[in-house]
Amino acid sequence: MPSLKDIRNRINAVRQTRKITSAMKLVAGAKLRRAQEQALAARPFARAMGEMLGNLAAGVRDLPEAPKLLSGTGEEKRQLLVVVTADRGLCGAFNSQIARAARRWIHEQRAQGREVALYCVGRKGRDMLRREFGDCIVEAKIGVTGKRRIEFADAEAIAADLIGRFERGEFDVCTLLFNTFRSVMRQEVTFRRLIPVEAPERKEEESGEPRPVWEFEPEPGVILNELLPRNLAVQIYGALLENAAGEHGARMTAMDAATRNAGEMIEKLTLYYNRTRQAVITKEIIEIVSGAEALR
């Protein structure tokens, strides 16, 4: 049986933990609001860009001179997966659900005889995948997803790196894996193909209305060459922001649960402490009384 002092120490330790978790919850809440605003503010640009790409791509995709970023290399043998996670832990299943999805995806691809390479953005993703797939990781960007404020330039740098690798022929298909922010409680694991581009469906085709005649200045091909790399950066930027908002949301939820658990634990320990204390007192009284009885 633990001594009274042991229990007291235990209670104090749990109190300290609760202080930390509740502070982390408040911090995550504040950061969440900022990240959420940023993620929402970035959506109009991504949407407008997607629409424009859809308009342009429909007419050009099948032409032989279509940019490679749009039409792909015509093969699917070498796959690159960009894994976006947080740099830090203590946010529930946020990172591990990405790692799990990545693992399953890799096994599926390998079963189909494809080669897989991993491009990790965020420390946690790399750490979790390193043991099993260490030789597949071609790059690990750390310190981007943990930044206070994610800049568009961060996404541009990653996009430029990916395009460079694509042009050097390191892979055929590139897929982005990240958590989409649905609500504070919910993040959704999302796969999105980056290269070749998955053009959004055209609205006109759904409604059956005739397409407007578009003028292009300069030719669609030239515009596409400018648009595609930027679209890549925009997609990555969006993913980074969703990831950041999701991370803070997940951390807030996890820390809230941890704070509540710590509270319950303190209650239980306190009860146990009081019982033990009384038991000790009772025992001492019995000892004194029976000692006195024996002397009579």
């Binding site: 424009m52 308009n55 342009l56 407007p212 005649v213 578009w214 003028e215 292009f216 200045e217 300069p218 669609p220 030239v222 515009i223 400018e226």
Partner: peptide, 14 residues
């Protein structure tokens, strides 16, 4: 440079 007035024809430009 180009000016965009109401009811301009659909256009995409760099």
């Amino acid at each position: 440079d180009f000016g965009v007035l109401p009811l301009h024809a659909p256009l995409v430009s760099l």
